[in-house]
């Protein structure tokens, strides 16, 4: 049996290690924010989560388009893997966001456009995953999921803009979260995003490969049944 490539596992490992190194940047290098103090450190884990979640959803969109154009089953499996990681990361981003809001402003939830958009996206893609868990004929399921994947991503900017208008009607209670980061903070945030990106890439790769293997086994099994 050909052994599996160790690259994705290495990616996950190196991502975790570099992120661990980033902890030094977060707590020693970056200055403590004046008004929020230590609480602002949550930002450095919140931001990469949100960023890579959004990027995962973008990958679902790309994969869906390419599935509709080329009908490659691999693109469909990429969508499945990306949607799963996206829901996981955006869920964690929501949790860190609420924890941050609780400590910084004393409420669990603020109707900040970004936070609202993340919540709606989490709902949309969680629904998408439910759709994926069903058992219609496989090819039809892939087509339906691809269409939903496209519609879902097209919806994201609309949700964001409407959440923004929604808030401007209710007077904004809280000032902008992170207006004007200092250069050290920016560098730290960048380091966190990049190192978390390694982890994310490894995770996505692992899941995609696992789904590939599962499909191959399914094909083998159905071929054996037909004999």
């Amino acid at each position: 049996m050909r052994s599996l490539s160790i690259v994705p596992a290495m990616l996950v490992l190196s991502g975790s290690l570099t992120f661990a190194c980033c902890q030094w940047l977060i707590y020693s290098y970056a200055p403590t924010e004046a008004t929020m103090g230590l609480t602002q450190k949550i930002f450095y884990i919140h931001l990469p989560l949100a960023w890579w979640a959004l990027f995962s959803f973008f990958l679902v969109f790309v994969g869906s388009v390419s599935y509709l154009l080329k009908r490659a089953p691999g693109a469909d499996r990429l969508c499945a893997a990306a949607a799963e990681t996206g829901v996981l990361l955006s869920g964690l981003a929501l949790v860190t966001g609420t924890l941050w809001a609780r400590k910084a402003w004393g409420v669990w939830w603020t109707w900040d456009p970004r936070l609202t958009t993340t919540l709606i996206m989490w709902f949309i893609y969680a629904g998408y995953l439910v759709l994926r868990g069903l058992n219609p004929p496989p090819q039809r399921k892939s087509l339906v999921c691809a269409v939903v994947g496209i519609a879902a991503f097209l919806d994201v900017p609309l949700v964001f803009v409407s959440a923004r208008i929604w808030r401007s009607i209710h007077p904004a209670v809280f000032a902008a979260k992170d207006g004007g980061l200092e250069p050290e903070m920016k560098l730290t945030a960048l380091g966190c995003v990049v190192s978390f990106g390694l982890f994310w890439a490894g995770l996505l790769w692992l899941r995609k490969r696992q789904l590939d293997l599962r499909d191959r086994l399914d094909t083998l099994a159905s071929a054996a049944q037909q004999q």
């Binding site: 609480t39 884990i45 941050w100």
Partner: peptide, 8 residues
């Protein structure tokens, strides 16, 4: 902050 990181 530690709790938040732990949750993640």
């Amino acid at each position: 902050v530690i709790i938040t990181n732990a949750v993640v």
